[in-house]
Amino acid sequence: MGRLAILLSGLLFGTGVTVSGMVNPMKVLNFLDIFGQWDATLIFVMGAGLIVTSLGYQIIFRRSAPLFATSFRLPTSQDIDTKLLGGAALFGLGWGISGFCPGPAIASLVFGRMESITFVLAMSAGMILTKQIQNRAQTSKA
C-alpha cells in the first residue's frame, strides 16, 4: 500500500506539471516576463497548489505519524543563510534562462526531446558536483 501511494503521488505530480503547461519552457518564461507578453497561468498553478497543499497538510499534521511510515520527515533547519539564498538565486538564474525547473524537466523526458535530455543531464552533473564538494567539506571538518 505504501509503495502504491508513492507511485500515485508521483503520477499526480507528473500529470499536474504537464496539464498546467509547466513542461513548456516558453510558457514559464512568458510567466516570468512580467514586463513583456505576460502569461499569468502559473499564478493559477501556484495558487491551486498552495490551497490544496496547505489545507491537506493542516489535516495530516493532526495525526502523529503518516499512514505507511513511522514518522514525518520534515526539514529542521531554521537558518536563512547565504547558502540558502545563494542557492535559490542560482536556481532562479538557471530557471530564468531555460524556463525549466526540476519537476517539469524530469517529467518532460518522456516526450523524447533532445533539449529535455540535455537539461536533465546538465542538472544531474550540477547536483552530483555540488553534493561531492559538500561531502568533501564535511569530511575535512570532521
Binding site: G2, A5, I6, L8, S9, G10, L11, L12, F13, T15, G16, V17, T18, V19, S20, G21, M22, F44, V45, M46, G47, A48, G49, L50, I51, V52, T53, G56, Y57, I60, A65, P66, L67, F68, A69, S71, F72, R73
Partner: peptide, 18 residues
C-alpha cells in the same frame, strides 16, 4: 487543474510516507 493535482501529490506523499 494542474496546480490542484500537484497539491494532491504533495498531500498524498505527506499523508502516506511523511
Amino acid at each position: 487543474l494542474g496546480g490542484a493535482l500537484i497539491g494532491l501529490s504533495a498531500v498524498l506523499l505527506m499523508a502516506g510516507h511523511g
